[in-house]
Design a protein around this nucleic acid. Structure first.
Length: 776
DNA sequence: GGCTCTTTCGTTTTT
DNA sequence: CGAAAGAGCC
């Protein structure tokens, strides 16, 4: 390793990188060079001979982070990085299970269910159990199961709290049995199976504990209970291994998915961490932005505590804007963004962030109508598209005909006259004999039996025809032979889907030639010997995983980009969650309103508010040079106009760092009429044409736009939907709850509701037609 | 079996 | 308001 790599580190980074073989907890603030520390440490460990490449395991949460680490490492080191266990939790578990499929009780060709496959599979279980879909929604059951697995609980371990839980436990048990029958595992199962095998097999545990001398974990604040327990099996507290945990409790924003920030404190305690390093030097943001971030997050009580600092300039103050409507807000954002662009900021360096996806619509509409290129993150990913999932289902049936999920997906697509009745019969037969749908086809006689036999014959034929072919050849043949291509060719709206299928064929081709082939997808040998490029034999049987199986795994484990329009200089739109880990020259943070952000659904418990605040912290720290905050007095939500007050987070920011572009109001009710009037006067260049705006706009098909300029829409005026005389921010008296403050108003007439904060009784939604509220 | 109408639901979602 | 899923109709 080039020794200058160490020379460029600051003292804290250096301390972290060169920590000797003992547990370390690194509190890595936003923009403090976390990835650099991780990769440099690995390079340091290797180049100083402290450990060989086979002795390192580095775990991340996203494929992107894992790839980034590998890329940086291979630039630093002459090694072939492939032998190292660097990957996502799920990717590494997958690799482990491929190597130990037999011990794990899995079929060799087991496949992975993605989120929607999982819900579909649970739904089948619920149907089979004849559960009332109203009272026991499959989606909820799927969540229940996932959460149980994240706590390492099998059906027998879950303690039910009510009748619904008892039913869900039964669903869980049946679902597990079904997955086992079909030879499939869901995401959580990858983790849990690995955990259980390590827990129950002392020899295996000893082997891996001896092998991995250094275990590095990225984004430690996002680990759930199972992942932490998993880690303790690979590198137990007090053991010989050195665990290097890197995280930032202030950026923990995934509690709703089971992440437990408490794992950081638990780690420090249980591993008796002697050295806790705080990386507080920030290399990303200007002073004002860091001031705002520090000030805001100091309002959280449960923190490990850290303060970002910079040697850089203060930069521009944070610009704050209040708008009368979400429409006007979008217009303001667009104008500011354009002026930044004119001043030289590339569009791709401008991010529009929001709390919830629904907010993107107004922004999109404004950008689209103005003809400004933009790109929205989120939504369907490549491998989640219906046509791609169809093609993959055929491919999966080639690998494993007992995969009922895939069977059901394509047995009648394209249509081949196999209806619900036939499938019910087939499912009954399968259930009573405990066999797969595929195996049960022969049990059906008459016409149903014939049409089904024709389908299985088709799949058999596809398998025969593709035997020995290249991966590309297989995919190409299946897309044609299954009838998918023909189906979309005859569909007048099928052009885009055909293109995607073509892209799948291309993806299959590049998957084989790519350097990445075999890294995530293919089983690697248990010991370090005999590493080959990709196709390495199975640890126990010596068998080689087929390229097709590897490709299918790749598709499940890495859903691909949302929408990659490479090279296009477009403004970036995404939720704050999606922005974590990214950075931009300029950031616009929109919809900073009570109820939206912090979101009202998070306010029921105090931890919820703290998580919202961390989310705000994440949002602020995405910005390098410029930060813009905005909120609107009114907003269209669920088809109704909502009247909002500005977010409490404004009160938690240092006034000196802010530059208010509008008089400091506070949302609806404060000087609204005046602002309203002036906004109306300002209009948008189309005075007098009321409501012309949203009609002309169609959601652009690909979620990036570059429309030719269309006339900007006129503002949509909020109807004075509250005949009650109430407005947000106003004090009210309620005979039962006492004094309170109106937070928001919704609906009108008989449906009018007010969100009111009462001192002692907390926040309540009150129907104005019923509740007696007196303005005070 | 496939289309159209109706109903329902709406925070965030790394794998 | 708008998407998506389910029910009902041809």
């Amino acid at each position: 390793m080039n020794s200058t790599l160490l020379a460029h580190l600051n003292p804290e980074q250096l301390a972290a990188v060169t920590l000797e073989s003992e547990p370390g907890l690194i509190l890595a603030g936003a923009g403090s060079g976390k990835t650099r520390v991780l990769t440099t440490r690995i390079a340091w460990l290797l180049s100083t001979g402290r450990v060989g490449p086979g002795g390192i395991m580095a775990v991340t949460f996203t494929n992107k982070a894992a790839k980034e680490m590998l890329t940086r490492l291979s630039a630093m080191l002459p090694y072939n990085v492939r032998g190292m266990w660097i990957g996502t939790f799920h990717g590494l578990c997958h690799r482990f299970l491929r190597a130990h499929w037999k011990a794990a009780g899995l079929p060799q060709g087991f496949q992975i269910l993605d989120a929607s496959d999982t819900v579909a599979a649970v739904k089948r279980v619920c149907k089979a159990m004849n559960l009332d879909e109203e009272r026991y929604p499959a989606k909820q059951a799927a969540h229940f199961i996932a959460h149980a697995k994240e706590r390492a609980e099998r059906p027998k371990d879950v303690v039910p709290r009510d009748e619904q839980d008892r039913r869900f436990i039964e669903v869980y048990a049946q679902y597990d049995a079904q997955c086992q029958r079909e030879g499939v595992v869901d995401f959580a199962e990858l983790m849990l199976r690995t955990y259980e095998l390590m827990r129950d097999d002392p020899a295996l545990r000893a082997h891996y504990q001896q092998r991995f001398q250094h275990v590095l974990v990225d984004e430690f604040q996002d680990t759930n209970a199972l992942q932490y327990a998993w880690l303790k099996l690979f590198a137990p507290p007090g053991g010989q291994q050195a665990v290097f945990a890197v995280g930032d409790d202030d950026q923990s924003i995934y509690a709703f998915r089971g992440a437990e920030v408490g794992n950081m404190a638990a780690f420090e305690r249980e591993y008796r961490v002697r050295l806790q390093v705080k990386l507080e030097q920030n290399y990303r943001s200007c002073g004002h932005i860091l001031d705002a971030a520090n000030h805001l997050i100091s309002h959280n009580e449960r923190r490990l505590g850290k303060t970002l600092r910079t040697d850089g300039p203060q930069g521009e103050p944070i610009r704050v804007n209040e708008s009368p409507t979400d429409f006007e807000e979008a217009k303001w954002v667009l104008e500011e963004a354009q002026s930044l662009h004119r001043a030289g900021t590339p569009r791709a360096e401008i991010a529009l962030l929001y709390r919830s996806n629904a907010q993107s619509r107004v922004l999109e509409s404004a950008l689209f109508n103005a003809g400004i290129p933009y790109r929205v993150y989120g939504g369907l990913r490549f491998f989640e598209r219906a046509e791609i999932k169809h093609a993959l289902a055929y491919l999966r049936l080639l690998e494993n005909p007992n995969d009922d999920t895939s069977f059901l997906r394509v047995v009648n697509f394209p249509a081949r006259a196999i209806g619900a009745r036939t499938l019910e019969q087939l499912q009954d037969a399968a259930r009573s004999s405990g066999r797969s749908l595929w195996q049960s086809v022969s049990a059906l006689s008459g016409k149903p039996g014939q049409v089904l036999a024709k389908f299985t014959a088709l799949v058999e034929e596809l398998r025969r025809a593709t035997e020995g072919q290249t991966l590309r050849g297989i995919v190409e043949h299946v897309v044609e032979g299954s009838g998918l291509a023909a189906h979309y060719r005859s569909d007048k709206d099928g052009a885009e889907r055909l293109e995607n299928l073509d892209e799948l064929i291309t993806a299959a081709e590049s998957f084989v030639t790519q350097e990445g082939f075999g890294r995530d997808a293919v089983a690697l040998p248990v010991d370090e010997l005999g590493q080959g490029p990709g196709l390495t034999p199975d640890a126990e049987t010596g068998e080689i995983m087929s390229p097709l199986a590897a490709f299918l795994t790749h598709a499940s484990l890495e859903a691909g980009e949302h929408q990659a329009i490479a090279g296009a200089d477009a403004i970036q739109l995404m939720t704050i969650h999606a922005a974590k880990g990214l950075e931009f020259d300029a950031v616009f943070l929109t919809g900073l309103e009570e109820g939206l952000f912090p979101n009202e659904r998070a306010l029921s418990d105090p931890d919820g508010l703290e998580e919202e605040r961390r989310l705000m912290y994440v949002a602020i720290t995405r910005a390098r040079q410029r930060l813009h905050l905005s909120f609107s007095q009114t907003r269209m939500l669920h088809g109704q106009t909502r009247y909002n007050v500005k977010s409490r987070f404004f009160d938690e920011l240092p006034p000196d760092a802010l530059k208010w572009l509008t008089p400091q109001g506070g949302g609806f009710g404060s000087g609204f009429e005046r602002d309203y009037a002036s906004a109306w006067q300002r209009g948008s260049g189309l005075k007098g044409i009321v409501g012309a705006g949203r009609e002309g706009w169609e959601p652009p098909r690909p979620r990036w736009g570059n429309a030719s300029a269309a006339p900007a829409p006129a503002p949509v005026l909020p109807k004075s939907g509250h005949d009650s005389g109430l407005r947000p921010g106003q004090g009210v008296f309620h005979t039962k709850f006492g004094e309170g403050v109106v937070l928001a108003l919704e609906g009108s007439g008989n449906d009018a509701r007010a969100h009111v904060r009462f001192g002692r009784h907390g926040d309540k939604w009150l129907a104005l037609s019923v509740a007696k509220l007196t303005p005070i």
